[in-house]
Each structure stands twice: as C-alpha cells, then as structure tokens.
Write a protein that binds this DNA or RNA. Sequence first.
DNA 1: GGTGTCATCCGTAACGTTTAGAACAGCTGC
DNA 2: GCAGCTGTTCTAAACGTTACGGATGACACC
Lengths: 348, 348
Amino acid sequence: MRDVARLANVSVATVSAVVNGSAVVSAQRAARVKKAMEALDYHADQIARGLKTGRTRVVGVVIPDITNPFYPEVILGAEEVAGLARYSVILCNANEDTAQEERQLNALFSHRVDGVLIACSNPAVAVDRLLHRRFPIVCFDRIPEGFRGDAAATDNFAGGYEATRHLIELGHRRIAILAGRTELSTHSGRMEGFRKAMQEAQLPVLDEYCRTGGMQAETGYRFGRAMVRLATPPSAVFCSNNKVLLGFMRALAEAGVECPADISVVGFDDFTWTENFHPPLTVVYQPARELGRQAMHLLLSRIEGGAAAAECQRVQLRPELHVRQSTARFEEAGRPGQIAAPGYERSF
Amino acid sequence: MRDVARLANVSVATVSAVVNGSAVVSAQRAARVKKAMEALDYHADQIARGLKTGRTRVVGVVIPDITNPFYPEVILGAEEVAGLARYSVILCNANEDTAQEERQLNALFSHRVDGVLIACSNPAVAVDRLLHRRFPIVCFDRIPEGFRGDAAATDNFAGGYEATRHLIELGHRRIAILAGRTELSTHSGRMEGFRKAMQEAQLPVLDEYCRTGGMQAETGYRFGRAMVRLATPPSAVFCSNNKVLLGFMRALAEAGVECPADISVVGFDDFTWTENFHPPLTVVYQPARELGRQAMHLLLSRIEGGAAAAECQRVQLRPELHVRQSTARFEEAGRPGQIAAPGYERSF
DNA sequence: GGTGTCATCCGTAACGTTTAGAACAGCTGC
DNA sequence: GCAGCTGTTCTAAACGTTACGGATGACACC
C-alpha cells in the first residue's frame, strides 16, 4: 500500500479512500492510484483490514459429517450466497463429535470470523455462549434444544409424518423406524411425525420396531441384521438417515429379503443416485441447497444488520415425498410364503 | 491481552511468552498468567498474530465441484491432517469455472492463507503465478499441464488401463469411452490408459465410441441417448467420471438397454452406494481420503519446511479395480436377439 | 567492592490497514 | 482583505500481537 501511495504520489490514506470508496477523491488522483495498484498488482491485505475494522469477511460453517452427501449440498447453497456477498467460508467438519465441534468453534472464533453457520448437536453450550455474547450465529438442519436464535431447517415433523402416512396408505400395519440419534432435532422431529401418523391410524409403535442411536452405514447394517431375525418382522420401515439406510439395505440384501416384495422402505434425503438404486428409493426429499442459501442469508443479514435486528428469525422448508419403487402395497395374503405371516417369518 | 497482563501484574511481552513458550518465564509468573487467562477466558487473536508473524495457520482448499462425492471424501482426509497440525481450512468451490477459481484464489491470497491445496483446471495461470512467487501450493487430483510443483494424484493412467483390460478380458471388442473433459490431467490420463490397453489388444478406438467434454449427469444422459442410437452400439463402456456415469445409466434404463446383459459398464470412484446400485457397479476405486491426507501432508511440509525443501515432490496413489455386476462376459452369439449383431441393434 | 555472567522481565517498534481530525487551498460574500 | 465554507488531502493514532534489545537483579569470581 505504501508502495502504491509512493508510486501514485499520494498518501496511504488516499489509497485507502479509493480502494474503499470511503471518501471522495479527485478523479485525476483516483486514476493515478488505480494505475499504480494495477502496476504493482496490489491486493488489500484482509488480515490487516480485519485487525483494524474487526470484520474479516469470513464466515465459518461447521457440519457434523462431510461424508453425508446432504451436507455438501447445503454447503453449495451457502457458499453460493456467501460468495455473492464477497464472503469466504471456513469449513469445519466436526465428525459427529461434540468435543471436536467445540474446538472448531473456538478456532473459528479466534480467527475472528464474522459469524458461523452450524448444524450442531446437543447440548450446545458453546453455541449458547456465543449467542449470549450476541455473536452472529445461525443453526441449520440440527437445532439444539432450547436454542433461542436464528435457525433454518426442513420441517422434519412433516417429513416423518408424510413418509409414515405413505406406508400406512399402502396398507402397512407393522411399521418400524430407524431413527438415528433422537437427541438431534432432525431425528426427534422425524420420529414425532412417525408417532403422530401411527397414532392417528391407531397403530401401535412397538419397542422392537424402534431402533435409534447411529448415524453411519454400519449401524444400519446392524439394525437390518437384527430386524430380519425378529419373530415377526415389520412389513415396512421408515429410515430417517440416508447413511443408515445404505447399511440397512445391505443387510436386507445379504439376508435375501427383497425390497419391496418382502419389505417396503422409505428413506430421507434424495440424491442423483437414489433413482438408480436397487430398488429406486422412495424418499422424503429436503431442499438441501435451498436450505444452505436461506441459512446463509439469515446469517449475513444478522451480521450486517447487527444484533439489533428482529429478535430471532426462523425459516422452515417443506420436504417432499418422492415415491419410487422401494415401497409397495401390502397385501396380508399377498405373495405366498413371503408376505403371509408364517412363510414370511420363515423367509427371513 | 492487556487485561491479562494487568491482572497477572506482568507485561504483555510476558503474556506472549507464556502463550507461545517463546521465552523462559519463571514458574510462578507463568502460573499467574495462566490463571489470569483462564479468568478472562482469553484466546489469542489469530488475526493480529497473523498480521505480525505473516503466518495465519489457515490453508485454502479449492475444489471444482463439491457436489461430486469424490471431493468431500478428499476434504475429509485433508481436514483430518490439517486439524491435527492445528490448521484451519477455508474451502472454496470453483464450480468447474476457471474465472471463479481465479477469484477464489485471489480471495485466499488476500486472506493470507499459508498455502493452498487445489484441484485445478488448465490453463493454470493463477497457480503458476503463485508458484513462481514461491507460495506454498500443491495440486491434487487434477494437475495442470506443465505444472512444476508438489502434487498428489491417483495413477489415472493405470486406472484407465485396468478398467479397459478388464473389459477386454471379458471378451469385449467394441469398447466405448466417456471421458469427461480431456484437457484435465485426470481424464486425459484415464483416456491414455484406455488407448494403451486397446492398442495392446489391437482393438480400434472409434471416434463414435469416444465421447468427451462433460462432467455432469446431464451430459452422461446425452451421451447415453446418442450411443443407444448408434447403428452398431458398443458392447462395453468405460466411463471416467462418476456423475457422467449416473446420467448414462439413466439413459440406458430409459432406452430399455440392460446392464450388464446388453452392455457392460465400468465407472470411476467408489462410494457407499455403488454396491447397492442397479446393477452393483464395477468401478475403479481411488483412495480419495488418503489422497486428501497425502496432499495436505505435502502442503504442510512445504509450508513449514519453506521453499528451501526438495525441489518438487510428487505422490501417486494406486487405484484398485472393484469388480461387481455391471460388467459381464461378452459372447458374440450370447443372449439371442440382444448380443448378436442384428437383433442387438434392433433391441435399442 | 568491582566486574562479568546469567536468568528474567519489560518497553516498544513494527505488521498493513482504517479513520478521525487537522491542514490546506480555493471560493464566496460582505 | 478577511471570515467562513467546501472540497480535497494528509498526518497519525489505533487494532492485538510478536520479538528485538535493553534493563534489572542475583550471584560468583577475582
């Protein structure tokens, strides 16, 4: 900057003024400065600027699992609107680990990011602390319990409800749920939707039909193996996590259980490959990219509007049921020896 | 920091010394300082530190398409080793757009990142400029032509070669290739491997069997539609990009062409879902996460070792062919009316 | 007691910006 | 001719660190 000033024969203040347009400078001088900047390939140092202004034009995004294709899609949307507003994003992958999440948050904070977008687990002590300091933070996807701040998420209750309704309407009565970690708002919401639908249809939700706790394919596989060994296996399953679903389907395949002939399955999240899956999957789709966009909008307006803005903004996105071929009508006396009770049981 | 110093009744220099361990300070004082830091919840400001030291402990990672599940997996590995070394990573998604890539690079640079990891397209003017200034930069996956710097990538030639050999050994003679953008090192490498295998087997590579240029499902779909309309369609296809493959398979399904009965397909990259695909896909797997780890190692050692380190380090990872059910033996007089020439053609 | 050697500690000048306020020049109006 | 404006430019003090060089005191040695 000093070099630019010298070359253009002005002071650094003038250079700063033309860079930021923060003060009026005569056309002639401005031209000189611009030429000098060009000549020296000058780019303002965001670090120094950040130190002085307290604003870095960097936001943090922390997600629990970058390997779950849902999140990259969200990031895509978030990055899109951040980039448009000339913000950069630091990405942190917490790996489903609260301790790591907290470390990441601290790192972000000491890097002086202007705000953070986070899909976070309970309990959210670190997040609450930040929020309490009026630090711009918005939660997306997973909203910690009791969180009082901006948030964007899919209507998980509706998603769970519709998925279950779909199964019920197909004639299923013995419906199981694989629900991921229910201490997360996402999965508890989907679970609630499931319960509501079951209750409305006066169907029981059996303990042995409720499996919770895991978020990886591995746990889905375990669930699947356990489920096929049940004396009376369910005729349909709602699986609220896509990675769990993958493992579950693998277990079914290994056990020779056919979907949808022997069992109907509806999953969560839709991707390019779900329609080429075997079988093409019925899923509840959530608009992941749009979620990323909206969440980042919330964050940026919080950052620019300051904490003075409206107390707490929430956006909720509607999921959509995409019906494909992993769900089929259930006939009690259907495919002989498979759907009918005794043969069905033995076939597992 | 001033507050901490005041509370501990020492100078800021001393606080800095205990934070960084950069000078010896008596145990008693150190304890006082630590207690004060605790009491005030002091965290060093990385921005100020960065300004002073010229090192930010942030690295940039720029990828061409976060929606391609290959890259998140790479990021996972990169983040893992960066985190261990207490570096944060700024993620940039270039969206397969050279102009955007250059903007991202500039942003990273003015944020004073200590180095960047990039999978970049040709021509790599921006990258070359950085490299020329001895800025720590390592290319991964896609290595621009003539790039003289650190790089990590899969042996794409071997991947293409093995995929093609596999098809040839299954008896295929009319083999097509869907090669993505061949100006990228990845796809040109895979293409070269393909050519080599074809040449060794004295098989012709026909123009109408070579489709290049796209990286999205949409183009794969177009390729597929065009290919099934050919007078003499190929009996096997090597598709060097996973998203293109998805579109291609969709086109086949729509046209009623069955895989592997009518056509064998081998893809690139392996994911959790490839084995549940319909049909389970034969693919050449590249160790994406390990690639991320190695690339980040290269970068960090370049950063810490300075430009003084070895002239230029390269690591190459071996891909593996994962054989599943999308490839099958080709019998000239096989499945009647499908594989035999005239009927085969009509069946499309 | 003077001198030299350590071991600690502190003052302070940077790092590259922004920004408040001072300075200055050219007008206008009386 | 001078006060008062306006419009432009500059000076210099921050922002929160680090690190160089000097200061201080304790101790040992002659």
